[in-house]
Design a protein around this nucleic acid. Structure first.
Lengths: 162, 162
DNA sequence: GCCACTATGTATAATTG
DNA sequence: TCAATTATACATAGTGG
């Protein structure tokens, strides 16, 4: 913004855009560093650019993972064992109940609920509209799919590291 | 930094720290917005504070998930590694490719993934067709919604059985 | 392309209401 | 506590090597 005020729009000139990115990237990281030290808060920033195939991850990929994990409410692999709190207990009890409901459900109910779930997941429908029974079923359906996804991810990880 | 230069250290005074956090938080988000519009890059920031139980996630939890999943998509070894041949032809070619992917991905990826997710969840498409990055994204999306469902169920349990 | 410089726009610490 | 104000430090667009 010095020398001249710049319009807040995509910079079409390639080299100018790159230069601006470099400068502002470091500025942003600096600001992030400052707010964490000054205020004692946790933060992370991820910056993708076309200039590098890898993103700039602050404070570090590992720390970012930790912050992200908290955001995703998923503990990183090492801390998984410690998860014995109220929430996971509730979850376990929930899954038992859900298993029953799932087995009783017909093919029609499944499709219907999948529709509803999709509506909810895509934000077109609030979860408020669902009854407690629907929620149980939905929870089961979603966590079932989550397990499939996680298994597949594990497979990828094993295959990649082994 | 105006009126007086501030020492870069934890602000012990509670109200001063809170005020500083508020101001700098908005400043940081603004800067992040600017760099994305000016340079056409993807970015996300997550700010935890003790002032709110939920983190401030920019641009939005869902968009952040997408950025995060791309970051997590990379195998750990690659995350820290810097390209050794900085000026090589390979790197240039890589940048070009990355630029394309970035441009194409930004607008369409979310809608595309939601579609794919629905296909998978409804059983019309096997999870096998998804890349590891897609799976991470999907895992985040699904577990995020699972948490919403669980919170709602807990609410029901407290108010109906208690 | 990469610095270093510097003039100028912005962010923000302190102050006031 | 929150907003609005203001004075000052900082970030950075343009410039030249």
């Amino acid at each position: 913004m010095p020398r001249s005020k710049v319009k807040l729009a995509y910079i079409s000139n390639d080299s100018a855009r790159r230069t601006t990115f470099r400068k502002r990237e470091s500025g942003l990281i600096k600001k992030a560093e400052e707010i964490t030290t000054l205020c004692g808060v946790e933060a992370c920033a991820i910056l993708y650019s076309s200039y590098s195939p890898e993103p700039n991850v602050w404070p570090s990929p590992l720390d970012a993972q930790r912050v992200i994990s908290r955001f995703r409410n998923m503990a990183p692999p090492e801390q998984n064992k410690k998860m014995a709190d109220q929430q996971s207990f509730t979850r376990q009890r929930l899954e038992k109940t859900t298993e029953k409901v799932t087995k009783l459900g017909t093919e029609n109910q499944h499709n219907e609920m999948t529709q509803v779930m999709y509506q909810c997941l895509s934000g077109r429908l609030g979860f408020e509209c669902l009854s407690i029974g629907d929620l149980y079923y939905l929870s089961g359906l979603v966590s079932q799919n989550l397990r499939v996804i996680d298994r597949r991810l594990e497979f990828f990880q094993r295959h990649h590291s082994g």
